[in-house]
Design a protein around this nucleic acid. Sequence first.
DNA 1: CGGCCTCGAGTTCC
DNA 2: CTCGAGGCCG
Length: 664
Amino acid sequence: MTSSRAAELRNLLNRWLHEYHVLDEPSVDDATYDHAYDELVELEREHPELVTPDSPTQRVGAPASARFQKVSHLTAMGSLEKVTTEEAIEKWADDVRKRLGDGASVAYVLEPKIDGLAINLTYEEGVLARGATRGDGEVGEDVTINLRTIPAIPLRMLGSDAPRLIEVRGEVYMPLAGFRLLNERLVGEGKKPTPNPRNAAAGSLRQKNPSITAQRPLSFWAYGVGAHEGAELTSHWQTLQWLREHGFPINPFVERLETVEEIAERCRAWERRRTELDYEIDGIVIKVDDYAQQERLGALHQRPRWARAFKWAPMTATTRLEKILIRVGRTGALNPWALLEPVEVGGVTISRATLHNEEDINRKDIREGDDVIVQRAGDVIPQIVGPAGRHKRGTKPFKMPSHCPLCGVEVVKPEGEAMHRCPNRACPSRGLESLINWVQAAADIDGVGEQLVRRLWELGLVRSLPELYRLTKEQLLELDGFGETSATNAVNSIAVSKAIPFRRVLFGLNIPDVGWVTAQNLARHFGSVDRLAAATQEEIMECEGIGPERAEAIAEWFADDDNERLVAELRSLGLRFEAGEEDRPVEGPLTGKQYVVTGTLVSFSREQAREALEALGAKVSDNVSKKTTGVIVGESPGSKVAKAEKAGVPLLTEDDLKALVGEL
DNA sequence: CGGCCTCGAGTTCC
DNA sequence: CTCGAGGCCG
């Protein structure tokens, strides 16, 4: 009686697990599942003889006492020849057709190449007997106890026609959402986060204690079989259907195609779609479908002629961290950055990456001389994710220098703040960096960029804003590469930039805590630099967005004699210190609306889009929140789309934007 | 006081 | 883009 109830519960629970983790169509709620599970645990506790290896309660087995055993695969797990271009796919397909001759039609199966760990599961009479890592292809490690904890891996195959023996191959991976949660948890526990989902999956599988593996959000996709006895399998496509029918999860995007054109088209489509998935894929696997054809094609150097891995430029790479250097910003903040051995990531060569601050470096546990994992976040900005492997011998944890590398003054790190800073207000870094900020952001002077400013600084020609505005054509002509025209143009653009609105001047003055928005608010609230400079801290706090901290910093800045002189000098040079028409908020049909622009637009630059919207009274911000009216989505957008969806903010296309601003 | 929201600051590559 | 932190509201 109890034994049949136990069997019934096992079957029910295994079916529900399959529905939940493989089919993604649960037929019962969690409570029902938990209730049945608890009942089975109770039954098995009272009657230990009823425990079977395929019982869902056995997913967490006994901890391994020693290291993992080596185990030989019955048939080798080969590796695939890589291709990186569409031309190479076409060439390969040509070769396949020539070798098969006879004008036979060839069909191909395409599947996403999941960036996880290849494993080999051996089922005997339909029951999971052993699971091993790929290892060197011949011999792997027996990680059965850990694989048992992965809900997507069937402990018993579905159906009554289980073969006597079969090796099922597939990929264990960690879904991105679970990966993020895991890292949040690790950091919360004061542990090191894992650098990427692949490493996280690998680490999870090699846990000595399976109850730790059980807590890791691992999943699995089957993609083929090895040795088998008692199953009729004639093609790859048919094998995948067979696996699906027997309870194995098969990636839903797998497809069978007949022509090379289709294959190339799908590969392109996948490259666009890859970032929308909840797992990382590093390419597409293309296989000749028919097993008889596969056999005739054979292998070359242990790599099958009947399959190729199409890999696109990797989004992450491993390289050597040569040196950690310091750059001092316009506010005096010390910013460590990494000099890397150049490496290609996502199609571009990366040689440097920001490291933010000392704590960040040590939390990631990276040192000069280490091999590190580099990735491009949100498509562009390179960042170091973490160390690749162990530290090199003789490396030391990073320490921030105690003195400013530019001026030698002792650096300070206020209690509770992340940044070290150089307190020297006369430090050359501040002057130079704020000049750069002026020419490229605040005034945005045509033809005068960072390179020129650096040269002028080094030559001692321009060391302050007033000196920039007093720069003459004759001075420029003495520089290499400057002719009559370019010198005249540069001097003219500098002169033209004197007319920038007050709010931009205010932003460019480098007042602590005053960025674009605060500068605009201050300009509108006070109307002139005189009224602002005369205001007390309390009066400044009346301005929108300014609390005690910022008010104090602003009041202090204006109380400084040097700054007072700077303002007077710039004013006498003709810069604007009174709010004008351009500083006033625009009233228009879009007043009160708030938009965010993300991705690349086709017929606008992002700046033009911003200006067009603002001209109609809309506010354009960088962050999506519940108050956002709409997010305009261009090509290859970043994480903002997800945020918008979560916040229930409507997504708009470039055409919607055109309709909005009335331009077609 | 806690939890959004917004702003500032620094940044890479071509 | 991302992080950190100040401001503001409930």
